[in-house]
Amino acid sequence: MADDYIKKLWEIAPAITDAVPHSKKLGIRFVAIDKGRSTLSLPYNPDLIGDTETRVLHGGAVSTLLDQACGLAAVASFDIPKSCATLNLSIDYMRAAVPGQTIIATAECYKATKHIAFMRAIAYETDEEDPIAVAQATFMATQNTAAGNDAFKKDTA
């Protein structure tokens, strides 16, 4: 049943990502999803520069990518679709993102309770061992989504 949920998420996650106006504005793209895990990418976008002198992307764009990746992985950590809200987001910035390069963010849920998902995420260009930034976050499951209820009604009936 959980596998069906992940299969379904593979189908709908790209559309979910594209349907978020702020993700679209930044250019965030869906890459992959698995149980409690997600990968997103952010191609280099001059509109997100934090300092025109260095052309490095603003930390806020990186934290948004990490937040979004954590949120998607949190959704994928449950067995049925639930909306998730960020409670806390903590980010360490190790170094500047390399101008011109796409940033990848991978997120994982390392513990999910009934209501809270505890997340970790890493942002990097090519090497996960050489991160731009690392995030730790907690998400709260708010309510089961209407679409989720319909799709999974047969499971609970």
Binding site: G60, D67, Q68, T86
Partner: peptide, 9 residues
Amino acid sequence: LHGGAISGF
């Protein structure tokens, strides 16, 4: 609003 927009702000 997107949480990322709020934190970026």
